[in-house]
Amino acid sequence: MPGRGKVPPPREVELTDTPLLEIEGVSRHFGGVAAVDGVSFRLRGTPIAGLIGPNGAGKTTLFNLIAGSLRPSAGRIRLAGRRIDGLPPHRVYAAGLGRTFQIPRPFHAMSVLENVMLAPTGQRGERFWCNWLGRGAIAREERAIRERALGWLAFLGLDRLADEPAAVLSGGQRTLLELARVLMGEPRLVLLDEPGAGVNPALLATIVERLAELNRRGIAFLVIEHNMDLVMSLCRPILVMAEGRLLLEGDAASVRGDRRVVEAYLGGAAA
């Protein structure tokens, strides 16, 4: 069961000094607006990195660029040394990068369990002819996927809701469901867009604790979050964006003390 089970073996890339994620001069324009403007940074090792900045700073756009939902107007993106800019989202996902959405998007009409079972890529049963010719093999595969899905649901405390339609979940539970789905793909790096938005404090504590546990098991995170307490306590390094640019990168103390950060937020509030 993945919930309790073994830590995935460290991959080769960790032995070299190839950055996990490398963003090089990435830009994206919408008409005349540069939503993301020449952003460069690297994530090394297995961090829980934070990405903060005022509303409209370009954080979600940057996620869309990394995850392949948008094409950069310029720049390069590498995951563990491999170019992923220009790849469609499903290839980026297969390359080991999962993402959740700012507004969670579970499949409402499906059960919670089905939502998670859907996630693994390259399922044999996704080839249509196997649904006719390889039914025994598919039944076995489905059982294994089901086990794994129930394991992650238990890990995230959603197992009791497994057979409910996803539409009945609360906001925080939807975030957890998204996380469960993403984890089925055995990602190296997960992009979380505001996992704390609209989540009650008790559930938020659970989410934070589970993220830390997953991180200990070798999964890196890049987290967009407006809840500063959460970011300051959980994330390192912290990246600050404003008006499409990367303002600075540092740990909680240096970010908190930086004048530019305060100005960016105040400027954002005044505008």
Partner: peptide, 29 residues
């Protein structure tokens, strides 16, 4: 019926409900 009840159909239902989310989960829409 075997098609839509199986994993292939599960992907199809996901695509019908939310194409973007299905793509983010690695489904070739």
């Amino acid at each position: 019926e075997a098609l839509v009840r199986g994993p292939w159909g599960r992907v199809l239902r996901a695509i019908r409900e939310d194409e973007t989310a299905a793509e983010a989960l690695g489904k070739p829409v």
